[in-house]
Design a protein around this nucleic acid. Structure first.
Lengths: 241, 241
DNA sequence: AGTTATTGATGTCTGCACACATCGGTGTCA
DNA sequence: TGACACCGATGTGTGCAGACATCAATAACT
């Protein structure tokens, strides 16, 4: 099902557009795509419809299927994010996600302290303690698993569905950081403590402390990552008149 | 072109799903939709493909087109946001957007102070000054226009395409707030001053001050709005195992 | 209980008619 | 003679109808 012709057509065109292989302004014809991908019109048409909804292309009668500039892409769409992570812009995408996460997580911690259900608060405390144990024992894989669960619970507990939707992206960045050897085998004691601080503040409903502790975690991760994506070009999206 | 059959089919099904008229778990057949919307199979199929990419439905052979629960919807997609704003969940959607904005704008201000191009910084200062003038003269429409431009410039100047993408939603919330009479004819002097503070801090590259001033604006906005959406039910998205 | 056959829905392909933006030719006017 | 407005030819997306392929849920069978 994942490898239906429709999916493959979307993947093929989406990746080629986002890597810049098909540059903005490039015009394609449906018939030409049929020949190129060796699929029928219906497959192409359905794929183009989806790419259109992602802001990657627009269709005009008598012209064809035109590739849109990056400023028109929907930067929050999971497909777009995945394709960008697999492209040369991987660094810029990771930085954008990290900046978003740094902005959102302290706010999510504050909201979780006010709104999260009791069971979630308790699990958060448990997970934070387990993180310290796994971290001190050098259990890298288990630590990553717990880290992902901690931040997922935090985002979920905010009760803001937009924050919660970032779970997947956060998991991806945490995993990527570990896989690429950017995480020490034994996490810093301060970071472990801050995780426990966040969990306990949320458990007792202390919104300000939860935000402050989460903010410390985010500032630390940002300063750790900062040098890895230096000189990634920034994309300035023009303001519509 | 906006009223193509394809587009209308998406709107029809999308709104009905998001209002709950078509509840999660509800199963439809493509043939039945053809009769209902009086369009051909290709239109239905292309519309369903797009709704599938938004996480609103899934298709299964031998079963049909199944409506997915709200936890599967992509809360960042412009269509989903628009449909939610037009539904009973309007209050909850506005709150989510406000919370996201409150988290993002101070971060955007900080980044803009570090990265924004010079011309943008200068325009930001001009707009902030014009806001004070329009505000003091009770020019509501012009003030709204300038307010939208100010916050758009801020988000754009961050150099983070995800932040910049929120321009549209911010414009919508600011407009909605004015239209619904939640804005006083003469904005508070403190708020006007904070806007100038943000602009001037960005202009001189003072990231910390820019964030602090933006944070004051956001906290004030949030406390103003808080009582309008009291007791809007929160949606907790479960953490995937 | 486990295996196989049936069934019914989506997936894919194809030929056709239509709408309409663009381009080039034609004719008019200065 | 040159510039410009008009108008029809052309080509491409949009929409329609019908066919066959595929595959998973269900029923039938051993």
């Amino acid at each position: 099902m994942t490898s239906s012709l429709h999916h493959r057509a979307i993947e093929n065109l989406g990746t080629r557009i986002i890597t810049g292989d098909l540059p903005a302004g490039h015009v394609m014809l449906a018939e030409q795509l049929e020949d190129e991908l060796k699929v029928s019109r219906s497959v192409i048409r359905e794929a183009v419809r989806v790419l259109q909804s992602l802001g990657l292309v627009e269709t005009t009668k008598r012209v064809g299927i035109r590739v849109l500039p990056a400023s028109r892409w929907n930067p929050f769409d999971p497909l777009v994010i995945r394709w960008r992570l697999a492209s040369d812009a991987r660094g810029a995408q990771l930085r954008s996600l990290a900046e978003l996460r740094a902005a959102v997580e302290p706010a999510a911690a504050e909201l979780a302290a006010q709104n999260a259900p009791a069971s979630l608060r308790m699990e958060l405390v448990d997970v934070a303690r387990a993180m310290r144990e796994a971290g001190n024992n050098g259990e890298v894989a288990r630590f990553l698993e717990l880290d992902i669960r901690f931040h997922s619970l935090l985002l979920s507990g905010s009760g803001n569905e937009m924050f919660a939707n970032l779970m997947g992206q956060v998991a991806e960045t945490l995993t990527g950081r570990t896989v690429h050897g950017l995480m020490p085998d034994h996490p810093h004691q301060a970071a472990l403590q801050w995780h426990e601080d966040v969990a306990e503040a949320i458990a007792r409903g202390d919104a300000a402390s939860a935000r402050a502790a989460s903010d410390r975690i985010m500032r630390r991760t940002m300063s750790q990552m900062a040098d890895t994506w230096t000189e990634q070009p920034r994309v300035f999206i023009p303001v519509r008149q």
